[in-house]
Design a protein around this nucleic acid. Structure first.
Lengths: 123, 123
DNA sequence: TTTACATAAAACCAAAAGGTGTTATATCAT
DNA sequence: ATGATATAACACCTTTTGGTTTTATGTAAA
């Protein structure tokens, strides 16, 4: 259904700084190719290649309107990155988990952390 | 201080599936190079290159112990990815923001959304 | 119907990425 | 001391990436 159906990995799509900047631009508003190109020091052809990669990762969609092709942001696939990240958040969100991680990965110690209820506020 | 000080971008470091798998392994526990290698179908040399890239992105640290070099996860730089993502979360966390985005990027309409207090429940 | 505009498609190129194999060096166990 | 283990350092190869220029095609406007 999509143009190339080449299925680019979203992690790879966002690896390039130019492509991240394109996403940021499209987050503000939809833009035709030439308007996008004007924000970069590279050729329009190069920008189009980046757009194709983003489209193959389903991060943008392009629709032809007259002689222009309008691209817009399609942020859905970023949830995959968010999910991936959430696994690692335990290592910095929770100081206890971090401690546990530090201790356990530093040798063969095994820890079990029992987090007691916080004290009731008795104002 | 670090081996190469080549400063690899974290987005690029996590772009490769093999490197993401390495991170996942090291999240469980620290491992020497050979133990990491045994999880992949590629050569130890190739794994070492991936480890160097991860180390240059400050996502792992390696410390020599005897004749082994033990690598461990250093998840700090992932916060940069999290921060980057948080900008785009508005587009899927909040249905109203999403609607606003859809409408505004679809033409030159300008919208202001006023979210009224939810109705008091009057059971 | 020209002329200008906006994109598309193709050929090409240099550098980086991801991989290999070989050789050397340090450490642990006999 | 010797041999096995674990890593380091090279040299090399192939494919992908990010970029270029050139040529063609479709659309809008004069």
């Amino acid at each position: 259904m999509s143009a190339s159906a080449e299925k680019v990995d979203v992690f790879q799509a966002i690896a390039d700084p130019t492509r991240r900047e394109v996403l940021r631009l499209l987050a503000e508003k939809e833009l035709p190719i030439s308007a996008i190109t004007s924000h970069f020091p590279i050729s329009r052809t190069a920008v189009v290649k980046h757009l194709h990669i983003l489209a193959d990762a389903d991060l943008v969609t392009g629709q032809k309107v007259g002689r222009e092709k309008i691209y817009r942001l399609h942020p859905g696939p970023l949830t995959e990155v968010k999910q991936w990240l959430s696994f690692y958040e335990q290592f910095w969100n929770n100081k206890l988990s971090m401690l546990k991680h530090l201790v356990e990965t530093d040798g063969d110690t095994e820890l079990t952390i029992v987090q007691t209820k916080p004290d009731q506020q008795k104002k």
